Simulated scan of single mutants.
Amino acid sequence: MTTHSKIYIAGHRGMVGSAVWRALTAEGYTNIMGRTSKELDLRNQQHVLDFINTERPDIIIDAAARVGGILANSLSPYPFLMENLQIQNNLIDAAHKAETAKFVFLGSSCIYPKFAPQPLKEEHLLTDSLEPTNQWYAIAKIAGVKACEAIREQYGKDFVSLMPTNLYGPNDNFDLETSHVLPAMMRKFHESKSSGEPVKLWGSGTPMREFLHVDDLAQGVLFAVKNKLPDYLYNVGTGTDVTIKTLAETIQNTVGHKGVIEWDTTKPDGTPRKLMDSSKLRSLGWAPAFDLESGIKHTYDWFISHQDNYKAISLS
């Protein structure tokens, strides 16, 4: 692959896709392409086949997905399962049929069992039951991982899956009904500074979570683009985790909020702990650059400059 190789980023306007685009551009890649959902419906198999056959990208990076937090998954289980299956399967199959040289599939740490040993290793996949609150999304992503593995095993193609831990950063979703925990907290603390209302957070605050700045994931994708990785599945994380309570306090301090936090213990906590072992990818040369405090500060600065344009996801 060269800096002139044709690269298609599916989901190029999302948090992950836009971060990958920035990373590739900064590295000197000049032939990057994307399509909006209006220009190309990734759920439509024939449209995807026609597009890939016409454009013939050398590399496809699948950063497209229907995503959301616990509430969104609970309210819309069928779309979270079916639409993600459609998007990834159409892209993977079209890439295979068009003889695309490299395919990078992006998933999530939720593919691993709820009570898998900590830290989560790649070999823990499919060893136990999933976390019920996001199982629909997880099952779809597992199917994508296994599809890429099957193509790699049967045809020897360079199809690789990267599974990031909880992501945050510029272009995140800050809609309170559909966002994940970190951006939802950031918006709540920011708005509470003006309103004076208590910040109400779900659960007990005791679960442990790991958070990765999206620009660090983008560097992992860039690493996979520039190198032929020897295995089919790699975790991408920081290797450290914090309690949700510590996360809340870190965001509170960054935002400059001085008010009250109320924990609603009637709401679910989710998985007790979810720390990833990313040593396999680290051993090849990738490493994250952001610690949690600097990453949250970077994200909040972006949020302040874009707060009139919260990204929302429809639940219909």
Rank of each mutant, 00 (worst) to 15 (best):
D128I: 00
T246N: 11
H306I: 08
K121F: 00
T178L: 13
E122T: 01
H306V: 11
V145F: 12
Y234N: 06
G259W: 00
V260C: 09
G28C: 05
H124M: 08
D175T: 03
V199R: 04
K267S: 13
S37C: 01
I251R: 12
H12D: 13
L120E: 04
S283W: 00
K311A: 12
L40S: 10
L201M: 07
A312P: 12
G28Q: 03
I142R: 07
A98Q: 02
M82W: 01
G69M: 12
K121T: 10
M186T: 11
S109Q: 09
K200R: 14
T246A: 11
D172G: 08
R43K: 13
H180K: 08
V48C: 14
S279W: 02
L292R: 13
D277L: 13
D216W: 09
M185S: 02
A143M: 13
A98S: 11
N171E: 15
T254C: 15
P183K: 02
E123Q: 02
K146T: 15
T54C: 15
I9C: 05
D128R: 02
H96I: 00
T299A: 15
T206H: 05
V199K: 03
S283R: 00
L275V: 04
W136M: 14
N90K: 07
I251V: 15
A184H: 02
V20I: 15
S192H: 03
Y29V: 08
E210L: 03
D175M: 03
T25F: 02
V160N: 06
D216H: 10
D269P: 06
N44P: 03
D264A: 13
D241K: 09
A224F: 00
S278D: 05
H298M: 03
S161V: 08
L275D: 11
L85A: 12
N227V: 10
K121A: 13
G68K: 00
P272I: 04
I52T: 04
